[in-house]
Amino acid sequence: MKKHAPTYLKHQFLIAMPHMADPNFAHSLTYIVEHTANGAMGLMINRPLELNLADVLEQLRPEKLSSPLCQHVPVFGGGPVMIDRGFVLHPASMNFDATVELDDGLALSTSADVLFSIADGRGPNRSLICLGYAGWDAGQLEAELADNAWLTCPYSAHILFDTPSELRLDAAAKHLGVNLNLLSTQAGHC
């Protein structure tokens, strides 16, 4: 029998199934930054916190007042791991002190200079700021997928950057032709 190479989900979305019991991930849409045999890392992109960029900058550079526009830049709960660490998804057209290029012209920056650049109006013009991340140990995400905890969906810049956060989960499901409201909250295997 021919062995199949593992399927990794880097640069895809994970849609939490309606029966997801873990409150950390219930009703979440997660962008998968990295997925290998060693595990996976993602950022939840539909959970705005009661923080904005001005609040974050007040901690990072209290000596400088932030632009009033910073009060309208939301910060998202990226996941339950390292919730004091920042991650910014943005177009790969700009690089910062700690930037990793992903796929399809997307990049991830983890240094404060990206936040300062956004606050000072120098860009990037499209971004999603998260505190914390979601992480899975080796084989953990694969086991959750086998238990029908998640649907996978191809990445869409439109969903990430142009869709209001409260509509992103349904937009990703619709991208697959799925209406989450019609799915059972009970999981099962035949």
Rank of each mutant, 00 (worst) to 15 (best):
P80M: 07
F161P: 14
D103Y: 08
G121C: 04
A157I: 05
G123S: 07
A173T: 13
L145Q: 13
E34L: 09
D137Y: 01
A107D: 10
D84C: 03
S165T: 08
C153P: 07
M41S: 10
A37T: 15
S28F: 06
A21E: 15
D104K: 14
S109D: 03
Q12L: 01
R47C: 10
H175T: 02
L69I: 04
F25D: 03
P6N: 12
L128V: 15
L182F: 13
A21M: 13
F96Y: 09
S66M: 10
V73S: 06
L180N: 03
I129C: 05
V73C: 12
H72T: 08
V75H: 04
L115W: 12
L89C: 05
Y155W: 09
H158Y: 02
A107E: 07
Q71E: 15
F13M: 06
G177Q: 11
M94S: 13
D103S: 14
P68A: 06
P80K: 10
D137Q: 13
G135V: 02
V88K: 01
A54Y: 05
T7Q: 14
L151T: 03
K174G: 07
P124H: 08
P91C: 04
L151D: 02
T152H: 14
V100Y: 04
A40V: 13
A134K: 12
E50A: 14
T152A: 12
I159R: 08
D147Y: 03
G139H: 13
H19N: 07
E101V: 04
G121R: 06
D162S: 15
W136G: 03
R61S: 12
A40I: 09
V56N: 01
K10A: 15
A16E: 05
D147E: 15
D55G: 02
T163M: 12
D97R: 05
P62G: 06
S28E: 03
T7W: 00
P68D: 12
E144A: 09
S109M: 03
G132P: 05
D147M: 11
S184W: 03
S109L: 03
A54R: 12
H11W: 06
G42F: 08
D147L: 12
A16W: 08
L29F: 11
F13C: 02
D103C: 06
V75Q: 00
P18K: 11
V73R: 10
K3H: 11
N148C: 07
Q12Y: 04
N38V: 01
A40H: 03
P164M: 11
R47E: 11
K3D: 13
M17C: 07
T36H: 15
L14R: 04
N179I: 10
D120V: 02
T30P: 00
L14T: 12
E166Q: 14
T185R: 14
S93A: 14
F116W: 10
N179L: 08
V56G: 02
L182G: 03
S184V: 05
N24C: 00
A112T: 14
S93Q: 10
V33D: 04
A26I: 01
H175N: 14
I129E: 00
G78S: 11
P91N: 07
G105A: 01
G79Y: 08
G86L: 10
E101F: 00
D55Y: 02
F96R: 05
G121V: 03
H19Q: 14
L60M: 13
K3M: 10
G188V: 01
L176E: 04
K3N: 08
P68M: 04
A54D: 13
S67F: 06
I45C: 15
G121S: 08
R122D: 10
V56K: 00
T110N: 02
R122I: 00
G123M: 06
R85N: 10
